[in-house]
Each structure stands twice: as C-alpha cells, then as structure tokens.
C-alpha cells in the first residue's frame, strides 16, 4: 500500500531523512516510533504530498507522490502533528467544511465516523478551540476520515494527550483497521509500539529496525536484569564501574543492567553490598521496545 525507495531529505545542511525504505501492507496498522527529530514528520509529509524528497521515490496505492499528487490527495486522510482545525469554528462547522471540500457530506460517510462522532455530538455547537485535548484529536480524526480515505496518515496524534484519551484513540484506530483502512501512525511513545501490527524504529533520519513488536522485543540478545537499591543514583554510578556491565540505564523504579555475558546475580549482589548498598533487589527483566531502541541507537 505504501512503498518508499531510498528517501532522502535535508533542510539546509541538516539531514532529516537518510535513505528510508519502507513497505506497508494494505490494511496494516503501521507505527513509526522515534523521538522528536527522528524524521517522522518529514516522512509523513512526503507521503502526504506536502514535501518533495531530495532523492528517492514513494508510492501510495501504486501512485507516485510527486507525479500523481492530485490523485493521492483525494484518497488519503491526513492529520498533522499539531491541532490543525479551525478553532473559531464549531465542531459541526469544521466537519461540514472538510466534508464539503472533499466533495462529500457527513451523511454519506457517517457510518465510518459514527463511533467517534457520537462522543463529539454533545459538543457539536462548541467551538473547536474550546474542546479538551482528547476531544480535539477525535474531531481531527473525524475530519481526516470524512471522505473515506483508503490510507490514513497520522502524525503524532497522541502527543500531549492524557493517558485516557491516548488509550481511547488507539482503540479507535483498531476499529478503523478492522474496516480495512491502512494506517500509518507516528509516535514518540515507545510503549505504543505494542499496539501496532508492525513498527519501524526511527532515529536521526534512519530506520533502525522494522518488524512486529513482539519480534523486535525478542530480538534482544543480551542478559537483562532489573536492579534496585535504596540509592538509585549511587547504584547507577557503581554499576557503570561493574566490569561485566554492558549498559546501565535507569528504568522507572529499577535500573536496567545489560551484561556482556551471563553473570550470577549473587556476584552482582555481593558487588553492590561491598559498595554499601542496602535493600538490594535483583531480578530478571523483560526487555521492552525502549531497551531495543537504546541498544540499536547506541551502535
């Protein structure tokens, strides 16, 4: 459904994309995962026909993003990173406006947006600028869906939205996927990777890895331990001095310690005791996408 071949783009001397090759299958919910500045927005804008790549090519539904940009603009739904609706228009006016410029009506495609729109309906006469963050995102999604696009390009739809709205948003995406819409969504939240069919980990304009979330996590090949003591700061400093340690990163209440080779936990326990740590806890840790990301991006 979406293909890119060696996409490159620079802003002045700063490279934003350094050769992106991507394949997204029809009906797939595909995640672009990476921090700010990884190149996610640039990639999505190129696919939305809003930017020209310096090099390489890209196709949506076998249509070229440069040559066939008009055709693509008819068939995609695009949601930019920041809230891009008219704040001084009401919910209903926004929706009607976008329906009309796509040459359709709310009624014609109501089926598709019904689940989302019922939540907005009580506020339909409220100005979009007065909606809560979560509601704004829902309205923006409705506007992007109103013309029944075959591909949905969503640029960081959950950034700055509270956890409840974030979860609701992902539930909506799952339902849209069930209606056979191909969805490309970018996010800086690593934990959202598990909600996608497949993800691409991006950093500094390059793709680190593309796979299913489970396979990515399973590809972690080093012993990983979660360690905790009374003084986390001291713990980090001491583990960095620990010879078998590969990487040491704080990870919530624990510190994730990856090892160059298998080491008995007792050995680590003893090492920490020697350095005056108390309340030592050491356990096996399940690697997360973040562990993978850090491992890959450090190479």
């Amino acid at each position: 459904m979406i293909q890119t071949q060696n996409l490159r783009k620079s802003y002045g001397t700063t490279p934003a994309l350094r050769g992106i090759n991507l394949q997204v299958q029809p009906g797939e919910l595909f995640g672009l995962i990476g921090p700010d500045g990884a190149g996610k927005t640039t990639l999505i804008r190129i696919l939305a026909t809003l930017l020209l790549a310096d090099e390489g090519s890209a196709q949506l539904d076998h249509k070229d993003v440069v040559a066939d940009y008009r055709a693509i603009r008819r068939s995609i739904g695009y949601m930019p990173g920041r809230f891009s609706l008219y704040q001084d228009l009401t919910v209903e006016e926004n929706l009607t406006f976008f329906a009309t410029i796509f040459g359709t009506t709310i009624e014609e495609n109501y089926e598709l947006i019904r689940d989302i729109y019922v939540q907005l309906e009580p506020f339909k006469d409220r100005r979009a600028g007065k909606l809560s963050g979560g509601m704004k995102q829902k309205l923006a999604l409705c506007c992007a869906l109103i013309h029944k696009p075959t591909v949905l390009l969503l640029d960081e739809p959950t950034t700055g939205v509270d956890p409840v709205s974030r979860q609701e948003f992902w539930e909506m995406l799952q339902r849209l996927k069930a209606k056979n819409i191909t969805i490309l969504v970018s996010t800086p939240y690593m934990d959202e990777a598990s909600l996608c069919d497949r993800v691409a980990l991006m950093q500094d304009g390059a793709i680190l890895q593309v796979d299913e979330p489970d396979s990515i996590v399973n590809s972690y090949d080093k012993p990983l331990l979660a360690v905790k003591t009374a003084n986390i700061y001291q713990l980090i400093q001491d583990l960095r001095q620990f010879e078998p340690a590969h990487t040491v990163f704080p990870f919530g209440e624990y510190v994730h310690l990856s090892l160059k080779s298998v080491v008995w936990p007792e050995l680590i326990h003893g090492y920490l005791l020697d350095r005056g740590h108390a309340d030592i806890e050491i356990k096996q840790a399940m690697p997360t996408i973040e562990d993978i990301f850090m491992e890959k991006s450090q190479v």
Binding site: R45, A48, T49, L50, R70, R73, R74, I76, Y78, P80, G81, R82, F83, S84, L85, Y86, Q87, F98, I101, F102, G103, C143
Partner: peptide
C-alpha cells in the same frame, strides 16, 4: 501558522 494550510493542501481542493 495555525497549520490548517497543511490540511487544505493535502486535500483535493
């Protein structure tokens, strides 16, 4: 500035 131009440009308008 508001970003709506982006949405308009990405539409068939």
């Amino acid at each position: 500035e508001v970003g709506t131009m982006e949405v308009l440009l990405a539409s068939p308008l």
